[in-house]
Structures are given as structure tokens and as C-alpha cells.
């Protein structure tokens, strides 16, 4: 399939999701225009992970609609263009680093998988571990591999949950540069403002399954009092709604 140069939009319209009697998302609505990079902020249990799982088609909403461009998130078309990194991602443990990358690359129909894997191994400094089983890797190297797996097919939509967790500082800088150079629409779930400010330029704040604020980082900063850090501003906003 020829991939469009313009990345698709991401949209949630009135999405609700229940786990038993607990309503994790309550009519969640937001839209990311093609190519926009948003941070998804919220306290523990706000519904961030559920939102991402709905957007990758792993969960179906009880009501409302989710779209990746023109496609339903669970469609094969959406799966082709989405790259997803869950929190604490765990690749196939009994596979080696290279086997993980080549297997997923082949399943995704990536051409010249071997060459692309070579490039990713070098870029993420995983070359010396290519024959190592995932179970024997350090947590940082597992995270590097997980990132590589999320982007091996050059997705035009990236849904990332705490992408910089466990990474050493040089790799963090590499990853930040790489993700910023990606022509894709990106939604990054994080608790760390530093990650949000380095990777994105806009913020969606959710709490108890609803959007409580959406805007640019510049606008968010302006909400603070003089000398107040952006972390303090976010903490205040999230505390006010709890």
C-alpha cells in the first residue's frame, strides 16, 4: 500500500469505557490534526492507558467512536500505520533482540527487514546485544528494543506510553531527535513534564476519564503565576479537579 505523505489525524468522539461498574472514560473527546504532537497528561487512574488501548484497537469503547484517519483503530489499515509502545513494554522474552525485530518486521510486511533492523540496532546502540535473549537484557536495553519494535515499520501515527523510561541520557537524546524527525502524528502519555516538553508542543490533560484542559505548552506555562514551574501548574490543575 502506498503510504500518504501526510500523516493521519487521531480522533476520539464521546468515548466511554467501563471495566465492570467502573467508568474509566466518560465521553472522552479530542482530536489531533495530522502531524501534531501531543502529550497526554493525567494523574494515576485518569484513563491514559485505556485511551491508548482504544486508539490501537486493543479495547473497544462501550460508546462513542475512535478514528485513526479514516479508519477504525481495530482495522487492518489502522494497524499498518500505527506504532504503539505500551508502558513497561515487554518484547518476546525467549527471542533474541534481532529475532524480535525481524519477526515483527516480517509480520508487518516491511521490505528489506534485515537492513532496517541493522540501522535500528546501530542507532539505538543495541548491536552488541543482537543475539541476546530479551530475558537477559537490562531494563534500559529492553526499552530501546521496545522502541525499535514500535517504529520498525515507520508508522505515521505514534502512540507512546512513557517512551523515555529507563533510557540513559545519550539514548534519550537520540530518541528525542529521532521521534521529532518522524513525519507522524504523535500522542505521548507521560507523568514527566520534562518528557512532555522535550517530545511535544501541545498537551491534553485528562482526569477521571474526561479532558480537563487542552492547549499548547506555551499556553499552559502562561497559566502559572510568576516564577511558578510548569510542573507546579499541572499539579495545581490536576489537584483542583480531584
Amino acid at each position: 500500500m502506498e503510504r500518504s505523505m501526510t500523516p493521519p489525524s487521531i480522533e476520539l468522539k464521546g468515548v466511554s469505557k467501563y471495566y465492570g461498574n467502573i467508568e474509566a472514560l466518560k465521553g472522552l473527546t479530542f482530536r489531533l490534526e495530522p502531524g501534531e504532537r501531543y502529550a497526554l497528561l493525567g494523574p494515576n487512574g485518569a484513563g491514559k492507558t485505556t485511551t491508548l488501548k482504544i486508539l490501537v484497537g486493543l479495547l473497544s469503547p462501550n460508546s462513542g467512536e475512535a478514528r485513526i484517519g479514516d479508519f477504525s483503530p481495530s482495522s487492518e489499515e489502522a494497524h499498518r500505520i500505527v506504532g504503539y509502545l505500551p508502558d513497561d513494554a515487554s518484547p518476546y522474552r525467549s527471542f533474541s533482540v534481532r529475532e524480535n525485530l525481524e519477526y515483527i518486521g516480517a509480520l508487518r510486511g516491511v521490505e528489506d527487514v534485515s537492513d532496517k533492523v541493522d540501522r535500528l540496532l546501530d542507532y539505538l546502540q543495541l548491536r552488541e546485544y543482537e543475539r541476546s535473549k530479551v530475558g537477559s537484557l537490562s531494563r534500559g536495553n529492553v526499552q530501546k528494543l521496545a522502541l525499535a519494535l514500535a517504529i520498525v515499520h515507520k508508522p505515521s501515527v505514534l502512540l507512546l506510553d512513557e517512551p523515555l523510561n529507563y533510557l540513559d541520557i545519550p539514548t534519550q537524546e537520540n530518541v528525542i531527535d529521532y521521534l521529532k524527525s518522524f513525519n507522524s502524528t504523535q500522542l505521548v502519555s507521560t507523568h514527566i513534564m520534562e518528557v512532555a516538553t522535550r517530545l511535544t508542543d501541545k498537551v491534553i490533560m485528562i482526569s477521571r476519564g474526561v479532558v480537563i484542559w487542552k492547549g499548547t505548552l506555551v499556553e499552559l506555562k502562561k497559566l502559572g503565576k510568576e516564577g511558578e514551574s510548569i510542573e507546579r501548574v499541572v499539579a495545581r490543575m490536576l489537584t483542583d479537579v480531584l
Binding site: 527471542f95 533474541s96 534481532r98 529475532e99 525481524e102 519477526y103 518486521g105 516480517a106 509480520l107 508487518r108 510486511g109 528489506d112 527487514v113 534485515s114 533492523v117 543482537e130 543475539r131 541476546s132 535473549k133 530475558g135 537477559s136 537484557l137
Partner: peptide
């Protein structure tokens, strides 16, 4: 608790396989 080697002896290659071939290879 970790007495086995952390390295695979022979890396399996999936490069050039179609998705269904890769699933059957694995």
C-alpha cells in the same frame, strides 16, 4: 535463577518472509 545462556546460538531469520510464513516459521 539464571543458569542458562542469555544468548541464542543460531539466530532465526525472518527477513524476506511474508507475514503468514513468519507465523508458521515461529
Amino acid at each position: 535463577t539464571r543458569y542458562t545462556s542469555g544468548q541464542v546460538k543460531h539466530t532465526r531469520r525472518f527477513s524476506g518472509m511474508t507475514p503468514i510464513k513468519a507465523i508458521y516459521a515461529e
